[in-house]
Design a protein around this nucleic acid. Structure first.
Lengths: 230, 230
DNA sequence: TAACTTTGTGTTGTTTTAACATAAATTAAG
DNA sequence: CTTAATTTATGTTAAAACAACACAAAGTTA
């Protein structure tokens, strides 16, 4: 009665940030015709597996990572001949992770797994470059109205780390003083009593943490996280 | 090799607005076990049919309408037993239409098609109530940062229509004077020379139109449509 | 012709934002 | 050990945006 020959896959665009550079995770295919080419981590879902679980499983299998943040990005299925064997519709997920927390390991399915700077992503298989672009846009816009930047940083961070993250992802200058004032005014970032001397010279800075509990409380009221200025 | 027994469907949450009330389109199932129950318009996609095209086709078939605005909302597939026969994953689309432009007709697949006020949506089949809720939220938030309200109105409208639309969808009072000032300041709404006497008494009002061309021009710069105030 | 209804417009105080400079704590170099 | 360099930390001010508010104009109804 219903004659559909379509398979469903999930793919993940995993962003990592380190020292001023934004990275995307890609894996090298081990199986199939086009072995060796780079693609986003992902794969077919199992019959009884929820979509989110499928993404998490694939990330574990192909790169050995667990993410800090994960949300659905969108479903790509109009490229009807993206796979030669049958039509594939892929549900793409957008993920954030702190690369420091993991050593990438290409486990089961992937031959290799690597971080590529977003500015230098190779030609990927399928419509994956398109997905990365969409995800990148999403990241940029979400950064301004949701406190997801913290999911890319260490739990304890210097204010300058946060500031640099915003600058480099949004690709523009931010006034350090206004930025700090604004962020602190929300009351969702708290100062620890730890002081750390970064890299080389300069005055040591205090470490800060993101207070998620406080943020969730505020959300119940009509608080709006919002960072946008020149 | 890949043993997937999953079917893919599309569903649409179609919003219509008329005289202060926001409506959602639902259709009554004609086929299947659970005949007569209300669901969102939608259905299985064809093997070679792009997702968007599938939605458009279903809307045509089940209700005889074409929409003004259509975008992907999200993919719902975790409710593994939503259909008894096999797992169904559904890509939901969010659509806006002006109900005046169409007479609903339940064509091929549906027994009936009706507008339900969002405040009084019956229990729908599958996870469709959940979809409606998500879409409703999306509508509310998009209204503030994208000029999609116009897709719910006539091409020529009174300022009070626009204002009432915002008030009723966002469910709050808006200062008429500040609202008008703000909208006009964008320069994307132009005054026609037509004057119309609404309903009964009161001073006649000028008709306005949304200048989409101008809006697209502005978008190329760094214009941001944004309406949010008390 | 008076009361009512709806459209149309301007001002003002308050808040938010943008722009900007200097002091404090440390390291590196001479 | 003194000076230069580097990084953190902090406050002020002018300009812009926002919120709150009231009254005149054009028509209809009683």
């Amino acid at each position: 009665m219903i004659d559909q020959n379509i398979k469903i896959a999930v793919d993940a665009i995993v962003f990592g940030y380190e020292k001023g550079t934004l990275y995307v995770l890609a894996v090298q295919q081990r199986f199939g015709k086009l072995t060796d080419r780079w693609v986003l981590p992902g794969g077919f879902i199992l019959n009884n597996e929820p979509l989110l679980m499928a993404v998490e499983r694939e990330l574990k299998e192909e790169a050995g990572i667990t993410v800090n943040y994960l949300e659905q990005l969108g479903t790509f299925g109009d490229d009807i001949h993206r796979d030669e064997r049958f039509r594939v519709i892929s549900v793409a997920y957008f993920a954030l992770v702190n690369p420091k927390n993991f050593v990438l390991k290409a486990d089961t399915d992937a031959k290799d797994a690597r971080w590529f700077p977003v500015a230098q992503i190779p030609k990927l298989g399928y419509d994956h470059n398109e997905m990365v672009n969409l995800a990148h846009q999403r990241l940029k816009s979400k950064l301004t109205y949701q406190p997801i930047g913290f999911d890319l940083l260490d739990q304890e961070f210097l204010f300058s780390d946060l500031e640099n993250l915003y600058c480099s992802i949004l690709e523009r200058d931010i006034d350090r003083r206004n930025f700090r004032k604004k962020i602190l005014s929300f009351g969702i970032v708290t100062e620890t009593d730890k002081v750390v001397k970064m890299g080389a010279s300069g005055r040591p800075g205090k470490l800060f943490t993101f207070d998620k509990t406080k943020y969730n409380q505020l959300l119940k009221g009509n608080f709006q996280f919002d960072i946008r200025f020149a």
